[in-house]
Amino acid sequence: MSTEISIEHVSMEFRTPEEVKHVLDDVSYSVTPGHFVSIVGPSGVGKTTLLRILTGLTQPTSGHVAVDGVPVKGSPAGLAVVLQDYTRSLMPWLTVEKNISLPLLNEKLSKAEIKERIGASLEEVGLSGVERSYPWQLSGGMQQRVSIARALAVRPRLLIMDEPFASVDAQTRFDLEDLVLKVKDDFGITTLMVTHDIDEAVYLSDEIVVLYGKPAKVRDVVPVDVGASRSQIETRNSQRFADLRTHVYAMVRGLE
């Protein structure tokens, strides 16, 4: 259950009455099925714009994006998203279970199947027992877990995350990172993540795409060869991890 994504010659311009802002310039890249890919780059470089194009929320000015060879028009099937802003992306008037079942509305599932999916997803993210709570009654880290559970409930082939751990504290962040790795191992979902945290990108990814410049181009694609299994202590302390981090950091800051 994984998916190939191809981004071909994508350029993006925003036109305002005063100026034309050229954000992305001829960006091309292919994601290998089952891979975890991070997109990094300086603030305001257009990372989120590229993600929005992949989700079908924004149309590129030129070039195209395809998922499994099918051009993206509107949101592709089998896509799930996790956004940074969990306080807004979870509906505050719905309980956790209703939030998770929201994307299942149009899938022809029986009540029992929906219940089963909610239970399984919550268990996967380690949050059983909060079905009847409202999102705002939970901590930030738990809310983001609900958001991930909601993404898993649709049994996605492609998971897109926009700075998913930016608004939680450091300890919770490590836990959520390991949760995402576990999900990847369990389901092999192709995952694309935007982050501004280079350590996080190196720790989680199979490959890192560095966007740089105005307008942004693909500066480099860095394969992350620190082994398949990762651990917060050993991986982060390895020499290879440090080298990769330095390399990516230098590119993001325009030093290399």
Partner: peptide, 27 residues
């Protein structure tokens, strides 16, 4: 309606009328 909520609903393939009655109106 908050844009994040609208886009979340859109990405999850809710129809226009589902978005209206299940997201925009409750919000």
């Amino acid at each position: 309606t908050n844009l994040v909520q609208l886009e979340t609903a859109q990405v999850f393939h809710l129809t226009r009328s589902q978005i209206l009655w299940r997201v925009r109106l409750p919000a």
